[in-house]
Amino acid sequence: MENHNFRQIKSEIRILGIDDAPFTPRSDEDVLLVGTVFRGGQWLDGVLTTTVRVDGDDATWKIIEMVNGSRHLNQLRVIMLDGLTFGGFNVVDIVELSERTGLPVIVVVRKHPDMERIRRALKHRFPDWKARWRIIERAGRIHRVESEDPIYIQTSGIEPDDAAEIVRLSTTRSSIPEPIRVAHIIASGVRLGESRGSA
């Protein structure tokens, strides 16, 4: 897939940050996803929501529907995900997500994933583990973003250097980008009645 060319990354670039609410592991329930529309790391412009099944296989399509159905779509320039999976092991195909929305995707994680451990967990729990693992592999190389507290990213539809610049630009109040931090706070508050600290 061709990468979006950011000649200049503006300080108020519109970012959609997505995180999931707390959920009961290995349950047969839906989990809330919250998307926050941010201008850089400063201004919250909107909130989107959808639900996905815990340990299901619908996260990619539910996020595509949420994004493409949003009135913010024309302003959005990038999608930022808190990890590759939501609701346990409901894996997002970031290549598909980028292609179907026309937006680059940046996955943000705080620690370098232990890929072998993830593969073993999938193999142990899911009959379709090979399909889930292929989606994880498709997300590509993990890149370290240097900052005060280094974090790690995977990308689709955007050069890693551009993605790293957007991550740094939007990391204004904690060690993670503001769109994801606020999505986490909102999702926790809606699910639990009160958010629990920072993301």
Score class of each variant (00 low, 15 high):
Asn74Trp: 11
Gln75Trp: 13
Leu76Gln: 09
Leu76Met: 15
Val78Gly: 02
Ile79Arg: 08
Ile79Gly: 01
Met80Trp: 05
Met80Lys: 01
Leu81Cys: 06
Leu81Trp: 03
Asp82Leu: 01
Asp82Glu: 02
Asp82His: 03
Gly83Leu: 06
Gly83Glu: 05
Thr85Arg: 11
Phe86Cys: 06
Gly87Ile: 00
Gly87Trp: 00
Gly88Trp: 07
Gly88Ser: 08
Phe89Gly: 00
Phe89Tyr: 15
Val91Ser: 05
Val91Asp: 04
Val91Gly: 04
Val91Phe: 10
Val92Met: 06
Val92Ser: 02
Asp93Thr: 11
Asp93Tyr: 12
Val95Ser: 12
Glu96Pro: 00
Leu97Asp: 03
Ser98Ile: 02
Ser98Pro: 00
Glu99Cys: 03
Glu99Asp: 11
Arg100Asn: 09
Arg100Met: 08
Arg100Glu: 09
Thr101His: 01
Leu103Lys: 00
Leu103Asp: 03
Val105Ser: 00
Val105Glu: 00
Ile106Ser: 03
Ile106His: 03
Ile106Asp: 01
Val107Gln: 09
Val108His: 07
Val108Tyr: 02
Val108Ser: 01
Arg110Ala: 03
Pro113His: 14
Pro113Met: 13
Pro113Glu: 12
Asp114Cys: 11
Met115His: 05
Glu116Ile: 12
Glu116Met: 14
Glu116Tyr: 14
Ile118Val: 14
Ile118Asn: 08
Ile118Trp: 13
Ile118Ser: 09
Arg119Asp: 02
Arg120Met: 10
Ala121Ile: 01
Ala121Cys: 01
Lys123Ala: 06
Lys123Cys: 01
Lys123Leu: 00
His124Asp: 04
Phe126Tyr: 05
Pro127Glu: 13
Pro127Lys: 15
Asp128Glu: 13
Asp128Met: 05
Asp128Arg: 12
Trp129His: 06
Trp129Asp: 08
Trp129Cys: 01
Lys130Gly: 05
Ala131Ser: 15
Ala131Ile: 15
Ala131Thr: 15
Arg132Met: 06
Trp133Ile: 09
Arg134Pro: 07
Arg134Asp: 15
Arg134Tyr: 10
Ile135Asp: 11
Ile135Asn: 11
Ile135Phe: 11
Ile136Val: 11
Glu137Trp: 11
Arg138Glu: 12
Arg138Leu: 15
Arg138Met: 14
Ala139Phe: 05
Gly140Met: 08
Gly140Thr: 13
His143Thr: 13
His143Asn: 12
His143Ala: 07
Arg144Ala: 13
Glu146Thr: 13
Ser147Tyr: 12
Glu148Ser: 15
Asp149Cys: 10
Pro150Asp: 12
Ile151Arg: 03
Thr155Pro: 08
Ser156Leu: 12
Gly157Asn: 04
Gly157Asp: 05
Gly157Ser: 10
Glu159Trp: 09
Asp161Asn: 12
Asp161Cys: 07
Asp162His: 14
Ala163Phe: 14
Ala163Pro: 10
Ala164Cys: 12
Glu165Arg: 15
Glu165Gly: 03
Ile166Asp: 05
